[in-house]
Each structure stands twice: as C-alpha cells, then as structure tokens.
C-alpha cells in the first residue's frame, strides 16, 4: 500500500539535494475558460427554475427538480475538478540540474520527459497572437545538443522570464 505513504520529494523522482528553481504550468486562461463554461452550464437549471416557479404544478415536482439539480451540480463539480487536476499535474519543473516536463493524461496515466541543463543548446520563445501578447503567454522550444530531440512547452506564462532563468542556470551549471 505504498500509495498511502507520504512522499519526501517535492515532485516525482526528485534527486537527492536537487533544488527546485521554478515550477510553471500553462497560463491560467487554459483552466479558467472551461471553469467559466461549467459555471454558465450550472446556472441554466436555476434560470429554468425562475421561469417555472410560478406555475401551479411546480410545487408537486419541486423536490424532484432540486434533487436532480444537485445531482447535476455534483457531476459538473467532479468534471470541473478533473480538469483542475489535469491542469495542475501538467507542469514544467526547472531545477538546478534539469528541466522536467510532466504530462498527466488521465488517472494513473503519467509521462515525464527531462533534459539536463548542460545538454541545452538553444532556447527560443514564440508568442503568437494578440491574446498571447496581451496576457503574456507563449511557447518555449528547447533544442538539446547532439540529438534532434526538441522540447516544446506550450502556452506558458512569462516565457521570456522562464527562458532567462533556464539560460542563467545553464551558465551556472557549466
């Protein structure tokens, strides 16, 4: 039953004495848009209630109506928090040794990619569109030395700052 034991690391597979410098995830707009949509959908039955409450037959069905409404809210609440979970577990961790990309695809379905700082050859930032400029989010592409492998992190907030942080750490590491 190891799943119930406490983890001593601040993230999965953290090396001993490894220092976490930065943890970032997609811009908040990626989380807030579905949540606002869910909130809008949650209010629809309440608006229906406002239009039917004066009907003569409403009192007969009111208890059933509200029980179904609370069930509906429970389903929406659970789906919203599934999205919250996916949002928070899809992240990029920058440590004093490496850059780690965590992909959570669903329950118990996780993928992790990492790149050591001294293998980073080039980092480029791409900010495309007026919304991205206004909210300051963009894509970061990291090219590693010796391989054709590229790390592409999409829709990260403050991409220039993240790039600077990684470059500074790379300079320090050697």
């Amino acid at each position: 039953m190891s799943i119930f034991s406490a983890s001593t690391n601040s993230f999965r597979r953290e090396a001993p004495e490894e220092k976490t410098i930065l943890v970032t995830r997609k811009h908040e707009i990626n989380l807030l848009m579905p949540l606002y949509t869910a909130l809008g959908i949650a209010l629809i039955p309440f608006l229906i209630y406002l239009s039917i409450k004066s009907q003569s037959w409403y009192y007969v069905f009111s208890a059933l109506y509200w029980s179904l409404y609370f069930l509906y809210l429970l389903v929406l609440w659970s789906l919203a928090f599934y999205n919250v979970m996916i949002y928070f577990l899809n992240n990029v961790v920058v440590t004093d040794r490496r850059v780690i990309e965590n992909h959570q695809r669903g329950f118990f379905n996780h993928e992790s990619n990492e790149l050591e700082l001294d293998k980073i050859q080039d980092i480029s930032v791409k900010i495309a569109g007026s919304v991205a400029h206004f909210l300051d989010f963009g894509d970061i592409e990291i090219q590693s030395a010796g391989t054709d492998r590229k790390f592409i992190f999409t829709r990260l907030p403050n991409p220039e700052k993240i790039k600077e942080t990684i470059m500074q750490l790379k300079m320090k590491s050697g």
Binding site: I3, S7, S10, F11, R12, T20, V23, W77, S78, F81, Y82, V84, M85, F88, L89, N91, V93, Q104, F107, F108, H110
Partner: peptide
C-alpha cells in the same frame, strides 16, 4: 473517481495549491 482526483492532487501536485484544492473538492 473522487478518491482518484484527491489522491492525484495530494500525491503528485507540486506546492500548496493542489492540496488546498483537494480539500475544497
């Protein structure tokens, strides 16, 4: 389903926010 959400947020979430959100959920 609920246990899985809470478990993932507490066990694999980095920082304080995911743990607080698990409690809210």
């Amino acid at each position: 389903y609920s246990f899985s959400i809470i478990y993932h947020l507490i066990r694999f979430g980095i920082g304080k926010h995911p743990k607080v959100l698990a409690l809210v959920f």
